[in-house]
Design a binder for these strands. Sequence first.
DNA 1: TGCGCCTTCAGTGTATACACAAACGTCGTC
DNA 2: GACGACGTTTGTGTATACACTGAAGGCGCA
Lengths: 231, 231
Amino acid sequence: MRAGDRAYVTLREEITNGDLPAGTVLGEVEQATRLGVSRTPVREAIRRLIGEGLAVRRERGVEVTEVSLDNIRELYDVRVALECQAARLAARNRDPEVFETLEAAFDDVSGLLDDRDGLRRDYYALVARFDDAIDDAVDNPYLVAAMRTVRTHLARIRHMARSDRSRLLDAAREHALIVHAIIEGNGELAAHATHVHLYNSLSHRLAKAVSLEGHTADAVSPDEGDARETA
Amino acid sequence: MRAGDRAYVTLREEITNGDLPAGTVLGEVEQATRLGVSRTPVREAIRRLIGEGLAVRRERGVEVTEVSLDNIRELYDVRVALECQAARLAARNRDPEVFETLEAAFDDVSGLLDDRDGLRRDYYALVARFDDAIDDAVDNPYLVAAMRTVRTHLARIRHMARSDRSRLLDAAREHALIVHAIIEGNGELAAHATHVHLYNSLSHRLAKAVSLEGHTADAVSPDEGDARETA
DNA sequence: TGCGCCTTCAGTGTATACACAAACGTCGTC
DNA sequence: GACGACGTTTGTGTATACACTGAAGGCGCA
């Protein structure tokens, strides 16, 4: 792997993790020293981060962007548009077998969910498979790229609103319906079920985020590092 | 302006113009020599182009991506999702005055359209104002960024399907309806009118592109260099 | 003591040197 | 004559040197 790619992956990971919080200035020399490479690959990595919107040029150097509650709403406005369309297209092109497997898994999910993080991780892995199946079925590189960008940004606010068990069970039912509609080839139902799912997801997150603001916002456990963000 | 930005703007312009056709290999040294800068800024520019999907890494170096008829359909699938949502949001947040001015302009457009390219450019400038007004009203950086990406790609296939006078008149009526719905604050109508407009736009383009394929595909006059692509 | 100018420094922008990998051509051998 | 191996060439990856800009701090003068 090239040093430039490593620097990019590392920095992006640290930003989404929160290790590099919003407002952190990304000096080329500083990051180059820290990552053990020269300025050139770091420079490339930072430029890519700026291109994705994870960092911005400021008067003095570049710094990690903020993510506010308003940003969450904005991201969901884009997400609804993209993922409803994706569901619609997936219903048109889908391979039924893939989604039948997924449907069975979502129906069985109550047996999977436990308060122990290992099992929760299994659920997130299932959602990741769901996302991949959609990406694969839509077969549209532009749409997939746009969705990936939104997912990257949403991953940053994961720690602000961690889903609880009851929300995950609801989310599983919502996913099951989306998958069912896709199997039936019912694009409109798939799109609308996606809309419903994302509305509920956003409502849950906003409630969590607001209730956390102020007292324990920074004390939320930031585990589940690589879990995909779709509950 | 920095050399890196200049290199990026120049290369992107040349790619969308068709001066650098699909498949052209973008060698760092070659482009650096041609643009009169060193490899470093050229390198940055090429990386940005790759990030946007205008270029791809190949076995040997990087080259300008292809745009096929299938790509046009894929782009419109994304465009419909994004711009319908944008119209909906614009109807919610709009400043009525801005759109009333636009509505008047679209109603008067038949007086503007002439076969002479200068007047046609005026029409494209009006559409650009429309796009800017939407971008401004939605007030969502993520959505605007996604739409800009799609527009950049669509600009590349402009020469494949140039709109004729009657299509432009129809497009003006379609735009007028979208604007009207936005003024009324009718988000659903704005979204659906956008859907109709984009459907007609795509149909027109595909018909043109198919009819051009084979005989005069490369002979289409590539003027109207900086016209925004929305008819 | 305060204000303004100058010097210095930190950091980015650009150029270039060096390293390394892959491909092509040529030469030698079978 | 053909095939294989080695050298050369071309191009990217990385590091670093140099230039320029903007800022901050210190010093001098009022």
